[in-house]
Design a protein around this nucleic acid. Structure first.
Lengths: 144, 144
DNA sequence: AGTCAACTATTGACCCGTCAATTGATTTAA
DNA sequence: TTAAATCAATTGACGGGTCAATAGTTGACT
């Protein structure tokens, strides 16, 4: 249950470090931030969604979603329009240009991922993934 | 080397999710952010250091370090003074109050960690840690 | 009808990180 | 000894996230 202090925080520490080191490299390699690519990915699969549905999928604050989508709209990658049947909702979809550009993003991302998982066998990957899933569950179970 | 798409991005995704979900809970449980606790930890071990040396250890930008330390100074947890032999450097140290309070922070942190690693055996923990180390190395090797 | 509650989206204030430019102190070299 | 280079720390501008408050729309209930 409890083990020696030197090791105790190490995994948490490593998780943070990996995140901090990986995020900026991801952005430089792919040319887009992970959050934005996530948004585009979801849109890629869905054709058109409400903003709130999108927000629930990517799991970032709706304020951030609004700002991202506005910028992506400014760059001509997504289109937004109000739901005519319910003006509270705004529908979001990829533009043609967005749809084209996301393909190259995906490519860059795949290359990035293979670099990150270099020398990991299939078994190791699934083993790692399973452990991460368990950690995720533990984190979720922490009340407060 | 390359495997099916559904699994490809999953680990990266999980790492991000864990980080995003864990950070705010950590802060609520312990009452302090991870970065700040890191800073205090280093100071706890070292008695007095220069700010730049501290910055190198915690691995966050020196601008952020300055701002953190100023706030911690405002709360009476750390003390700062210029190095009399070289006025470029500022020395940082824990105050008595800071030294007291960090003990409880450590306690909260330990409890948090055991929750995160619930149901993980020693072997699993070292196995996980080793894999994370390898990933960290892979990330570091990504040029650009 | 009219009011009230619920819901989406947006905005503002804030935290935390980065990079780039600046300030002040010291060292190096001419 | 003075000028240039270097270095630590700070500051400002910005990106991206959160929460809280607000605006606008819709639905339900009296």
């Amino acid at each position: 249950m409890s083990n020696r202090c030197s090791d105790e925080g190490k995994i948490i520490y490593q998780l943070n470090e990996i995140f901090k080191q990986m995020s900026p490299k991801f952005e430089r390699c792919t040319g887009i931030s992970q959050s934005r690519l996530d948004l585009l990915h979801k849109l890629f699969e869905v054709d058109e969604t409400s903003q709130s549905a999108l927000q629930k999928e990517v799991n970032i604050d709706s304020a951030a979603v609004t700002r991202h989508l506005k910028q992506l709209e400014g760059k001509g990658m997504v289109a937004r329009r109000k739901n005519p049947n319910d003006n509270r909702f705004t529908f979001v979809s990829l533009t043609e240009e967005g749809r084209e550009r996301i393909v190259s993003y995906r490519l860059e991302k795949e290359q990035f991922i293979t670099k990150v998982l270099k020398d990991f066998s299939e078994e190791e990957q699934t083993s790692l993934s399973n452990m991460l899933t368990r950690i995720q569950k533990n984190v979720k179970d922490i009340q407060y």
